[in-house]
Each structure stands twice: as structure tokens, then as C-alpha cells.
């Protein structure tokens, strides 16, 4: 990994790329930036209809239960799948100019992260409208959970973006892989219904802990389980270190491979 100091020197580049991405995302559409809010609202509407009328279950306020897990998951899966092609997408830049290559996945993940933060405005609106109270103390844990998820997503994006340069299939494999991963994470169901023999696998999945923490704070209005938080944090740091190590090894030949 390039020295952190160098990355810090290039912070303006990260900022510029994030801004360019966010501004360019809905460019040309009539509603423009409003889509950032309309999209999650429409998703919420679909889930509410499906799970109230077609597939009713006994979880109270299921739409909220699902929603507070789904938005963080979308951030994570977008970082992994979209992040994997981020280096390839910027090949013109990489072939012709020097900058710490980590800047590209970092900007991509950060832009997804900012998008999630904007979606949280919708989440809070829904929480207030639904009448579920907000626990201010528990809310203090929210930034910590977000940072942990960010670290995890960044680690994965560094890993996948570097490998995709050499092995372009990964992009497509990841599409199905993240779908499977979503069903292996208790987002649509409660962890309590997971069969006992599969539980160790679920506990190894860092996203299980992250989603549980989000849900504790936003749905349950309680302080998340410390063990969950610590283990997800540990796994997040592990993936970040692994991701940057592999990225650092592979990035030397980016310009030739692209």
C-alpha cells in the first residue's frame, strides 16, 4: 500500500472523484439528484406491499425491519461488485498518469457510502413516521457501525478491484456471489431461524454482525451487542489489511495489463 501520507496528500483527488461520481450519477434524468431519495422510497413501497399482502409474516413492522438492513447491505454489495470494476473503468487515467492507485477504490466506496448516508435521511423519516422511537444513546453507536462497515467494504473493494484487472470474469462471478451472500446474511429473516449447524458460518460472516448492529440501533432502539460490534470490527480490519496487501502487490502491473 502506498504510504498513508501519500494517500493523505491525494485527499483532494478522492474528494473530486466522489463529487464527480455523485453529480454524474443521475445526470440527464429529469428528477436528477432526487432519485437518491426516490429510489429507496420506492423500494420500501414494494417491500411493504409484498410483505403485508402477499407474503405476510409475524415480524412487527417488517418493512422497517427489512429496510434498516437492506440499505446498509446495498451499500456493501455495490462497493464489492461496482468496486471490482472501478480500476478497469478508470484505465485511461491509470495508464497515463501517476497517483496512488488506492485512490480509485477508495473514491468509489466513499461515493457509495455518501449515497447510503443520504438514504439514511429516508430511514429516519420512516422511523419517525412509523412511530418507533429513537434511542439517542443507541444512536451514538451508529457512526461506529458505519465506520466498521466502511472499512469492511473498502477491504473487499481493494481486493476485488485489483484481481479484476487480471481476471475480468470476477466482475460477473461477484454478481451471483453477492446475491448468495445476501441470503446468507440475516437481512430478510431473523437470525434465530437459522439452523443450529449453520450458525458458525453465519457468525464468520462479518455482514451478519454489521446488519444485527444496525438493526439493534434503528429497529430495536437499543445499544448493539458489544461482541457483535467487536467481531465485525476485527473482521473488517482483517479484510482491509488483506485487501491493501494484495492490492499493493498487484497494482505494479496495472498499466501493462489494462
Amino acid at each position: 500500500m502506498s504510504s498513508l501520507k501519500e494517500l493523505y496528500d491525494y485527499r483532494q483527488m478522492i474528494f473530486s472523484l466522489v463529487r464527480k461520481d455523485l453529480r454524474g450519477r443521475y445526470k440527464g434524468s429529469v428528477l436528477g439528484f432526487l432519485w437518491t431519495f426516490i429510489n429507496p422510497l420506492l423500494q420500501l413501497l414494494v417491500y411493504t406491499i409484498v410483505f403485508s399482502y402477499i407474503l405476510p409474516n409475524n415480524i412487527d413492522k417488517y418493512y422497517l425491519y427489512l429496510f434498516v438492513g437492506l440499505i446498509p447491505w446495498i451499500f456493501f454489495s455495490a462497493s464489492v461488485t461496482g468496486g471490482s470494476s472501478s480500476i478497469v473503468a478508470q484505465k485511461d487515467l491509470i495508464k497515463k498518469i501517476y497517483f496512488p492507485r488506492e485512490v480509485i477504490p477508495i473514491s468509489y466506496v466513499t461515493s457509495c457510502f455518501v449515497n447510503m448516508l443520504l438514504c439514511f435521511i429516508v430511514i429516519f423519516a420512516v422511523i419517525i413516521i412509523s412511530g418507533t422511537g429513537i434511542n439517542p444513546v443507541a444512536l451514538l453507536c451508529l457512526p461506529v457501525i458505519m465506520i466498521v462497515e466502511y472499512i469492511l467494504a473498502l477491504g473487499m473493494a481493494l481486493l476485488t478491484s485489483a484481481i479484476t484487472v487480471y481476471f475480468r470474469d470476477l466482475e460477473h462471478i461477484l454478481g451471483i456471489f453477492t446475491m448468495a451472500w445476501m441470503y446468507m446474511t440475516p437481512i430478510m429473516y431473523e437470525k434465530s431461524i437459522v439452523p443450529q449447524n449453520l450458525l458458525p458460518l453465519f457468525n464468520l460472516n462479518p455482514m451478519t454482525h454489521v446488519i444485527e448492529c444496525y438493526r439493534a440501533v434503528l429497529y430495536g432502539g437499543e445499544i448493539p451487542d458489544l461482541a457483535s460490534l467487536v467481531s465485525s470490527c476485527g473482521l473488517g480490519i482483517f479484510f482491509l489489511v488483506l485487501g491493501s496487501f494484495i492490492f499493493g502487490k498487484l497494482q505494479k502491473h496495472f498499466a501493462e495489463e489494462l
Partner: peptide, 20 residues
């Protein structure tokens, strides 16, 4: 990194930021 839809001034910031 020039973006055609952004103004010259904004592109100065983007482009210069790529130089660190």
C-alpha cells in the same frame, strides 16, 4: 479526468487534484 459538463474552474480542481 476532465469532465465535459463541468466548468473550466471545476475541472481545474479535478485535474489539479489528480496531480496530488
Amino acid at each position: 479526468g476532465f469532465h465535459p459538463d463541468m466548468s473550466g474552474r471545476e475541472n481545474i480542481y479535478t485535474n489539479a487534484s489528480i496531480f496530488g
